Simulated assay, not measured.
Amino acid sequence: MQQRPELGEFLRSRRARVRPDDIGLATYGGRRRVPGLRREELAQLAGISVGYYTRLEQGQSPNASDAVLAAIARVLRLDEAERAHLHALARPAPRARRRVAPERLRPAVQLMIDSLTDVPALVLGRRTDVLAWNPLAHALLAGHLDRDSVRHPHTRPNWARLFFLDPHLRELVTDWPGKARDTVADLRLIAGRHPDDPRLAELVGELTMRSAEFAALWSAHPVRRCARHTREYRHPVVGPLTLNDELLTLPDDEGQRLVVFTVAPGSASQAALRLLADLVADAQPAPTPRAAPAPR
Rank of each mutant, 00 (worst) to 15 (best):
E9G: 15
E9K: 14
R15A: 04
V18M: 12
R19N: 01
G29H: 03
R33E: 11
L37T: 06
R39G: 04
E40T: 14
E41K: 11
A43E: 08
Q44V: 03
G47W: 07
Y52K: 10
L56V: 12
Q60D: 04
A64P: 02
S65T: 11
R74K: 14
V75K: 07
L78K: 00
E80L: 13
E82I: 09
L86M: 03
A93G: 11
P94S: 05
A96C: 00
R98V: 14
V100E: 14
L105G: 06
A108S: 15
A108V: 14
I113D: 00
G125T: 12
R126L: 09
T128I: 07
N134V: 01
P135R: 11
H138F: 00
L145F: 01
S149F: 05
R151P: 05
P153Y: 06
P157M: 01
A160T: 15
F163H: 13
F164Y: 11
D166A: 08
H168K: 01
A180F: 06
T183L: 14
V184W: 09
V184Y: 03
R188Y: 03
P195G: 04
D196R: 14
P198D: 05
P198E: 10
E202Q: 13
L207V: 03
M209C: 11
R210M: 11
A212S: 14
E213L: 13
A215D: 10
L217T: 11
L217D: 03
P222H: 13
R224L: 13
C226P: 04
A227P: 00
E232G: 12
Y233P: 08
E246K: 08
T249W: 06
P251D: 09
D252S: 05
D253S: 15
F261L: 05
A271H: 12
L275S: 10
A277I: 00
V280L: 03
P285R: 06
T288Q: 14
P293S: 03
A294L: 14
